[in-house]
Design a protein around this nucleic acid. Sequence first.
DNA 1: ATGGGTGCAAAGTGTTTGCAAGTAT
DNA 2: ATACTTGCAAACACTTTGCACCCAT
Lengths: 131, 131
Amino acid sequence: MKQRRNTKQRQLILDLVRSSCDHPSADQIYLGARAIDDKISRGTVYRNLNLLVRQGELLHVKISGADRFDCRLGFHHHVLCTECGTVRDAPLSYHGELDPEVASKTGYIIEKHSAVFEGICPDCQNKSKHN
Amino acid sequence: MKQRRNTKQRQLILDLVRSSCDHPSADQIYLGARAIDDKISRGTVYRNLNLLVRQGELLHVKISGADRFDCRLGFHHHVLCTECGTVRDAPLSYHGELDPEVASKTGYIIEKHSAVFEGICPDCQNKSKHN
DNA sequence: ATGGGTGCAAAGTGTTTGCAAGTAT
DNA sequence: ATACTTGCAAACACTTTGCACCCAT
């Protein structure tokens, strides 16, 4: 069983994800961390993000290209703005009954599902009006 | 307005995706194409897949890492086996009423949503029994 | 002191692109 | 003949990894 240490880098990364509500990509977290600790390396950021996900302290969200990270645990869905690429949580409850439904129809053991809504956020709607 | 030509490469790629039911990744399509035309290049495969998606002849499915392509048009959901990575269509209807619901709650203009169910397929369940 | 963690840079994936030559129209 | 397409290789974007040094325990 591996020990886990508290390094300031790891704490910094966790704090950054927890304080951002926009599901940052690994690179955005790296840049944010870099602004505070100008020695921290990309390798450390990626390693720690993966570690924190494995330990259940963060959620890994795969949406449109780069991996993103989410401090909100538990099942929930996301809304992606196809214009600016930002991601926010969807104000919907989790329809857990769909999991056994799909399981019985397919023979799979279903663990969970996740939905991504795609559209244009209010900001981008305003921007395109002014063009 | 760009013309579109019928090249044998493009036709081959389209045929391959249409004849595969497992949502192949670009690289799987490349390998399949390569087995038939041993001169075709990765660049051509990627270019044509993107073109065919832009023209609405294929669907782009972003699941777990690599981009995948789907010849089934129209909104539908997917089931991913987290063990072997295969993807199949989910036997569920599209709940279109969720789109305006999310739209009114968030102010986004929602175009669509897509759900991915994660679990273990029957094949992989059997394999793990025998270990 | 010990072994997990870090910074760095190199190596891996998966995808896109510039260019000269090829080909469908 | 024209200009869209191809094959090739180099370039990209994102992520992982090997290694020597460092530091939390």
